[in-house]
């Protein structure tokens, strides 16, 4: 008598198929043959070293916030503040890297650490609000995105503006502070390796550690967790802090790896797209890596698709929005019906 037709494993695959179908329709509406559209998309994302480099740059930028979101979601917390967490982490890294003279290796380590601290702090605020004030984390993390946007703009224009800066941005990092390039003649830095390492660590956290076990239990069955010695308020701020820290490291790698300075407009919405990525990746760190690569292909290939097949790249963002809506709603409904379903055996 159970009515759920799609198992958990089938959902991401269904999402991918829906994306492809919707994109085909969008291409037809734009007056382009899907064949042309998809071949432009694939050629533009995987058709050469430069293309693959750009795809992986987008993959890396999405992977950090997606992993952070996956961590929070697994703990039952809908953190949609990855955008703000990423921005604050990037600001601390950029402000530090653009103004301090240190041995390069040390500077890079400190920049990444500051990214984690900035993002973590931003997540911790929402965590504290949830644990102490019972503020809904969906609202608070979303609001904190806007706070982050304006606070960083204010800080940069008031104090942190680089000497030769054009636009609201900090000074450029010296070349020695740049993250090493992973694929020569592309923009791809070793930041993506850090992201993958974090994914592996998260997998380890979830499967091997007591903390990861408690996080998952709190996410799956908060009442059972509470009654079995799990301190929910502590886990709430801890997981939002960790979640923010991961997104913040992502911000720092964008600064140190690709942009080489902090710019208030450094993210075109990675923190929001990452929600879709995390859901398509089924909140499983390793699957989230694959999903990030898939969305990286869409991001990078979407440009080529627009440029050579005249399909607006924004269709991809529309479709990403639909995916967030469908998968998030599905997850929400599943959680709510859990109580009803509990015991229907």
């Amino acid at each position: 008598m159970r009515r759920r037709s799609l198992g958990n494993a089938a959902a991401p695959l269904a999402a991918v198929i829906i994306i492809i179908v919707l994109m085909s329709i969008a291409m037809l509406v734009a007056g382009t043959s899907p064949l042309d559209g998809f071949s432009a998309l694939i050629a533009g994302s995987l058709g050469g070293r430069s293309q693959i480099g750009e795809t992986l740059v987008a993959t890396s930028a999405l992977l950090f916030p997606s992993l952070g979101i996956a961590l929070a979601f697994r703990a039952g917390l809908f953190n949609i503040g990855a955008e703000g967490q990423l921005l604050v982490g990037a600001l601390l890294a950029g402000a530090f890297g653009g103004s301090v003279t240190l041995p390069p290796f040390l500077a890079i380590i400190i920049m990444l650490a500051l990214g984690a601290i900035g993002g973590g702090l931003w997540g911790a605020i929402a965590g504290w609000m949830k644990a102490k004030l019972r503020a809904n984390e969906i609202i608070s993390t979303l609001m904190l995105n806007f706070v982050a946007q304006y606070v960083t703009l204010w800080l940069v224009t008031q104090w942190l503006m680089g000497p030769a800066a054009i636009g609201a941005e900090t000074a450029w990092l010296p070349n020695t502070y740049w993250l090493p390039t992973l694929i020569p003649h592309t923009r791809l830095s070793i930041g993506i390796l850090i992201a993958i390492a974090i994914a592996v660590l998260l997998q380890f956290l979830f499967t091997r550690t007591v903390l990861g076990y408690e996080l998952r239990a709190a996410g799956e069955a908060p009442e059972a967790a509470r009654r079995n010695g799990i301190n929910l308020p502590r886990l709430t701020w801890l997981s939002l802090t960790l979640s923010g820290a991961i997104a913040g490291i992502g911000g720092a790698t964008i600064v140190a790896g690709e942009l080489h300075r902090f710019n208030t407009q450094l993210s075109p919405g990675y923190g929001y797209v990452a929600i879709a990525v995390a859901l398509v990746g089924d909140l499983d760190p390793l699957k989230v890596c694959v999903a990030s690569f898939f969305f990286g292909i869409l991001e990078a290939g979407g440009l080529a698709m627009q440029a050579s097949a005249q399909v607006p790249k924004d269709t991809i963002h529309v479709i990403e929005g639909i995916i967030i809506l469908v998968l998030a709603a599905r997850r929400y409904v599943a959680q709510r019906s859990e109580r009803v379903e509990a015991g229907s055996l």
Binding site: E54, E169, S267, P268, E299, L303, A304
Partner: peptide, 17 residues
């Protein structure tokens, strides 16, 4: 370009084509 992070990908995409 929606953000400063878009400049290089956009320039590179057109370059690759």
């Amino acid at each position: 370009s929606r953000s400063a992070a878009d400049y290089q990908p956009n320039l590179t995409a057109l370059t690759n084509l």
